[in-house]
Design a protein around this nucleic acid. Structure first.
Lengths: 365, 365
DNA sequence: GAAATTATCCAAAGCGCTTTGATTGCGGAT
DNA sequence: ATCCGCAATCAAAGCGCTTTGGATAATTTC
């Protein structure tokens, strides 16, 4: 019935044991110079009294925060999005495993730099993960000048040599997917892309455009959209495309989320995915949506998709960051993952009656 | 060019100013007994040198962590789900506003109790938010015995008097929605519910069942499902329902996520929502999905829905928790919100050819 | 048997802040 | 002049931990 008992601290514990604080601390932290018999006594007592070292005291003494910061930029009508949260789930698993804390800051995008300054000068975190990198992102020089270790989820530039990052080969994924559609006879392919201020969206477009150019597909600016990857966006963009004068026969979508909007719009137009219009989505293996292949083996996934688990990326990013914090002098760690191309039910040959004629001068090589 | 300059601490700052640490500290923390001229000098210097008090030192000295903990239970095939993350986004806004940190722990559900013990004994947080309350949830007595302030998102029991919570009137929402469908002539209504170990799902079912009983609707256990609220679940459940011998004419769905799966299954069966089968979803106003009414005024939402913003709930829960931390002796704070019933495009009168006959003895009250 | 290790343990300093309990001037009341 | 009160400042004591630099006793080494 010892309700709200004082939390026992190191001093009390050592008094109870008749040992010095030094010895107790060392016993618990696994130092070799303490007798195993003593250590066992200490550990048992700590367990029994539910002693755990105060986080702030420990971090004041060691200078380590044992925490990683993540900034959730709060744009006007968007907040924490599901891609983001799946990434966090993965990263969080790793942190928990290694005794690190995960700090989340939800702030207006403008204030992000200030958060990093706060993190650094108050010693709140030992490192951060940078989300949604822009081309030539100002955050990188800032973090470097603050001396705060970081890993970028994505890349900020073509070189990408002097910092750690983990990324999917977005250009190749969209290159392959577009090529696959072209192989199926599609010549008028739309791209419902993410926000192109984000570097990854830029790369995806490059992959798409490379195939359009190489194969002489319809290069119509009206076929390309760029916005935040949410369901209503896909719905609206697909609506425009399908109501337009020359609807595409295939659509590439930057995430499963807008892809669901696309399918919804198609249903309203009486079109069936895979037969009337083909759809390929980039699938981050979001845990709460269709098409994340884990488990359900045997089932043909709904979406044909470029697939790469964003949660797995979160895990890996966390690992890379922790490695870097433990051994700060190593070279930057870089990892480029290839997305799988998984065939589902939303792609098929271009319907014969909707083939656009191949321009004469582009028919070959 | 002062790269990686030592972070300036209170002692250095006070030396530079020719003042004692006491005065500098008080100046920065707004104590009245310091000369305004001095305070201005101090503030200016702090600003210029980018001084901010070390978080761990401050929290060691004050005994306050200035942090709130959230535990993300990691069940077998589910992780951080979008409902959860939208709630976090809301809570995080408030924390940031009041200078609190948000700690996220991603752990196996079994270990949740241990996390709370860790939080408490290491003084990591000043309070926690309890997510996904079960009926008679063991976390509440634990948190009480640990003396850790908390707010529950939802309720754990019928009384719900001796702890703080914020909840939606789930029973009434589902009571109203079911009644609305009955008014439209539907007599065979399915319920695709959340996991009924969760207290909220239980309440939703009660609301549904009350109408079924009162109005003498088909009370077929095959019409009720209970699982984690993800898209594929809705797809699968609706598939079963629609392929069965007596498909329902209306479906209640516990979240927009499975509701999208329901719509997908309907499309495959060649059924149009609102005409062939009515669908009402509980809409948490998830920021990345259709049907969150903010902004897009004038548009008729897709789903007919019971709507209550989970992000707003996150904001409010955070506020309640902070109030409670500041003034620990007040009575528990409780708040029950009513969901709106919003008419969209997915409901309509029961098709004439599919009306089930009203049993003779239940035709009237 | 003296000196040098080795195995254990400890006292005390320090991490950077907040806060308690003085201390110093100084103008106004006595 | 003397005392009081007020405004402004400060020295020093923690907060609870880690870690440095010894101690002390037991064990080897020569």
């Amino acid at each position: 019935m010892n309700v709200a008992r004082e939390t026992v601290n190191l001093r009390r514990l050592s008094e109870l044991l008749g040992l010095s604080q030094t010895t107790v601390s060392r016993a618990l932290n696994g130092f070799p110079e303490v007798n195993e018999v003593t250590r066992a006594r200490v550990v048992a007592a700590a367990q029994r009294l539910n002693y755990r070292p105060s986080a702030s005291a420990a971090s004041l003494a060691t200078g380590k925060a044992c925490a990683i910061g993540h900034v959730v930029p709060l744009t006007e009508h968007m907040m924490i999005n599901p891609h983001f949260s799946d990434f966090l789930a993965g990263a969080g698993e790793i942190y928990a495993q290694f005794g690190y804390e995960m700090l989340l800051r939800v702030v207006a995008q403008v204030d992000e730099a200030d958060v990093y300054r706060d993190f650094a000068s108050r010693g709140r975190v030992d490192g951060v993960v940078v989300h949604g990198p822009l081309t030539n992102d100002p955050r990188l020089p800032l973090l470097k000048s603050l001396g705060l270790p970081f890993v970028v989820h994505g890349r900020c530039d073509e070189e990408a040599k002097d910092y750690s990052w983990i990324d999917v080969n977005n250009r190749r994924a969209f290159y392959r997917a577009t090529g696959f559609l072209a192989d199926l006879g599609h010549r008028r392919i739309a791209l419902i892309n993410g926000l192109e201020t984000m570097n990854f969206a830029d790369r995806r477009r490059q992959g798409y455009e490379a195939v359009v150019a190489e194969r002489g597909l319809d290069a119509d600016p009206a076929l390309v959209f760029s916005e935040d990857m949410v369901e209503p966006y896909g719905y609206r963009a697909a609506g425009e495309l399908l109501s337009g004068p020359q609807p595409p026969t295939a659509i590439l979508v930057s995430s499963v989320l807008p892809a669901m909007g696309v399918v919804r719009a198609m249903a309203e137009h009486g079109l069936r995915p895979g037969r009337d219009v083909s759809v390929i989505a980039f699938d981050d293996s979001l845990s709460f949506l269709q098409a994340s292949g884990e488990g359900k083996t045997g089932e043909v996934p709904f979406f044909t998709a470029m697939r790469s688990s964003i949660r797995q990326a979160g895990r890996r990013a966390a690992e890379m960051l922790l490695e870097q914090i433990v051994a700060p002098n190593g070279a930057p760690r870089r990892e480029l993952w290839e997305a799988e191309l998984v065939i589902g039910q939303t792609t098929g040959p271009c319907p014969a009656d909707r083939r656009t004629p191949v321009p004469a001068d582009e028919g070959r090589g």
